[in-house]
Every structure is written in C-alpha cells, then in structure tokens.
Design a protein around this nucleic acid. Structure first.
Lengths: 226, 226
DNA sequence: TCGTCATTCAATCGTTCTGTTGAATGACGA
DNA sequence: TCGTCATTCAACAGAACGATTGAATGACGA
C-alpha cells in the first residue's frame, strides 16, 4: 500500500510528531531546550551522552518540527520550534500521570512522602513574594539561571544548597524550583533543606511553565560565559 | 544501564504514552473511539484491518493508559481512558500543523481551495441554528450519530448526501460536520453539495470536540442495533 | 458439559529504530 | 590555503516494532 489517501497521509504526519516524542532521551532533551537554546555539544554534556547520539536525536526532533536549528559560526544552536511543543509534552505527561499506575509508583517510591511535598502554586508564590515572607531559590545551574529566572529568585545550584543554607536563617521558609514539574533537582533541594532543619517547599512546575504562563522573567545580560 | 534513576524512569513512562500515539493506525483508532466505545470487531470493520492487528494495537494503547477495556459478555468494549487523551492528540496535531510543511502541502493538495472551505466556528453555528438559518447535517454513519450528535442535526451519511440534497431547497445553506478536524467526510460532503449548486460549509472540528467544549449533545436512545 | 464465537496469545519474518564507530563536511582563524 | 574544531553522515550490530498466521482462552447458550 504505497498509495495513501490524504487522511492516512495526515495521520502519518501526526504520528511522526508523536513518534519523535516517544523516546525518554528526546524528552529529556526537550526539557533542557525549554530552558533556552543549546549547542549540540552543550546538550550532550548536560545529558552525559555521546555527541553523535545527541546530534542524531536532534535531527529526529527537527524532522518532526519539534526543534529548530540556527547556525552561529562553528556552532549550531537548537531550540524548541514552538511553544506548542511544551503543551504537547504537558498533555502527554498528563495522560501518563492520570492513567499509568507506574508513574504514581515511581513518584511515591522515590519522592517520598509527597503529601509533605505539596507544591506551592504560582499564584501563592507571587503573593508570598509580595509580602516578603519567603526566600525563592532557583536550583538550576548558573547558565540556565542566567537565561531567564523568576524575578526575585536567588541562584543556588543544587550542589551548593547545603553550603548556602548554613548561612541563612533556618526559620525563614524557602521555596525551590528548577526545570519543570518532574525535574528532580527541586525535590532534592527541598529534601536537603528539610534534613537541615529548614522549612522548604517546591514551586509547582518550573521555569518554562512560568514563562508560558506569561509571568515576568528576569534575564542576566552581562555574564561571563561559562 | 538497567539501573535507572527516578527521573529516567518517569521519562520512560511519558515516552510510553507518546510512543503509543506514534502510529497512524492507532491515531485513527483513537479518532474512532472518540465517537464512542467500540468492540474490537467493530473497530476492525471500520478501519478495514484484520482483527488480530487491531487487538494488538488496542493493547498497546491500553498499556499506555490511552484506552480502557470493559468486558460485556463475549465482547470487549474499548473506549478512551480519559478526555486528556483527546487534548494530547490535539496538541500533537497542533505541532504538526504549525511546523510540518508536509501537512500544509497535503491539506492544500487534497482539500482543494481551502480558503473557500473556511469552517464555521461552534459559536457561529449556534447563532445560525438559533436563528433557523441553516440546515446542519451529520455525515457520519448512523451508528456514530446515534451515540451522540449536535442537537438539531440531521444524519445524512456521506454516501447519501447526493440523494438527500436532491430533495432539499438548494438556496438554504448547509453546514456539515463529522468526526474531527481532519476527518475527510465533511470535506467531501461540502464538495459534493457545492457541485450540486448548494451553499455548504464545514463546521470546525467534529463531534468529540463539540462534546469536549461542554456543549449539549443529543443521543438516540431506542434504536435497533445495526 | 459442549459447541460457538469474540478476543487474545504465540510464533514468525521483515522492517525500523538505537547507539557506536570512524570518516566527511563546513566554518573559522592563522 | 591550511589546520582546527563543531557537527553531521555512513555503516554496522543488536533490539524493538509491525503484520500475519494459527492456536488458545473465556463467556455464552443449548
């Protein structure tokens, strides 16, 4: 059957997009690209994968219209083609969260006592920040923080959380956020802070969702490149 | 690497869902199941596929939490597990429509003169229906019509459109709808009616989207089973 | 209990996807 | 023009997927 009717041809295109989303590594790449444009090399370093492998997955994503490439000298910077990519990712995640018991099991098993971990909503956070009640920390690496962060947030990369907390008032509540709703970094930051006697909670979602919600973003403009 | 950290495990689950959406036949199955629950046999007949093939694809969808099965005597009725499935489908479609030139090419090539085909929005339709200005036809097969249709719509399956139009006032505008935004039936119905001198347009989207929008649906309750 | 029938399972083969390797490309700077 | 370096291409083996076939399961009615 190489003759296809238009309906089948369309479904093949839709399936192309879904298929491109159907690989854990590519989903992780999308989450990273949602923080900002990245070169192949930078992305490979972040994910701990061979460059050629990342390059091929990027091209799979590009063929599906999920990312776009822009050449800049020696480097090719990839970024998400469209905000609709994030909403597609969110929809797929929503189905998995709602329907797959395995997701629930993983969440309960690894992110222990998730009820205690009830996240702060964006609206709650904004009210708290207005009232100056809490300290907001962005636990992503510095380069991602520089590309855009929640106004008023302090950059405390995950590795530095312990050291940072030693110098702060343990009675003040800390809110942590990172790349997205299932990014482990903010979970771990909260766990670390609590084990040190701090009061800490997570922000729901992460930076891309904050931006997508149309909320203000602060950018560090003059930073020495890492 | 059989040891996975929780993050990778979660991404694998999300990828499972996306992978399940990554096959044209499964997408077509989802569109049919969005009209209402179906047995394996009925779905196979609708799609012109071997039963075993459909059964296997249904199980792939079930493993991904996309459809759910309910046994009823000899038959197993499958239906969409959740409304979030339709929104995931819509998101994926959105990415494809926005980013893949191929989609645009197919639409332009086969659904000729799409500008003339500007669809009627749901709100426009409701206003037109209130004023009694138009005739609304549902061009899906009778069984799908029976399971739910837009109030005031007449069921005119695609094959019967020509015969039906002969007995109607050609000056009255006809609005056609079917299964969804890329279901070809309403395109073809409009083309047929226009070639016969009628004024005809499509409704945007189809029945599942109408229902998802929270608009009223009429069901035929006492119908001889087909 | 037994036959019937819708559905699922199991086994098969051909195709596509994945990750790895090493070579090719293409832009920059000397 | 030539070397350098980021990226991509090409080719391979191993794994997963897809369609088909025929047998097995499980519920119904006699």
């Amino acid at each position: 059957m190489s003759i296809r009717n238009p309906k089948q041809a369309l479904y093949e295109q839709f399936a192309t997009v879904a298929k491109a989303l159907g690989h854990p590594l590519r989903l992780e790449m999308i989450e990273h690209l949602a923080q900002g444009a990245r070169s192949v090399e930078a992305l490979a370093a972040k994910l701990g994968q061979p460059i050629a492998n990342i390059s091929q997955h990027l091209q799979a994503l590009r063929r599906a219209g999920i990312v776009s490439a822009e050449r800049d000298g020696k480097f090719v910077h990839y970024s998400l083609a469209d905000d609709s990519v994030l909403s597609a990712f969110a929809s797929v995640r929503g189905v998995a969260e709602r329907q797959l018991a395995e997701v629930d099991r993983i969440v309960r098993g690894y992110f222990d006592a998730r009820d205690d971990m009830r996240p702060v909503t964006r609206d709650e956070l904004r009210a708290m920040m207005r009232d100056g009640l809490v300290t907001l920390i962005d636990v992503r690496p510095a380069d991602e923080f520089a590309l855009g962060h929640v106004p008023g947030a302090i950059n405390v990369p995950l590795r530095e959380v312990k050291a940072w907390s030693a110098g702060t008032d343990a009675s003040r509540e800390v809110i942590a956020y990172c790349r997205g709703p299932w990014c482990v970094m903010s979970f771990e930051a909260v766990a670390a802070l609590r084990s040190l006697g701090h009061s800490a909670r997570r922000l729901e979602d992460g930076m891309p969702e904050w931006k997508a919600a149309g909320l203000p973003v602060e950018v560090v403009t003059c930073v020495a490149s890492l």
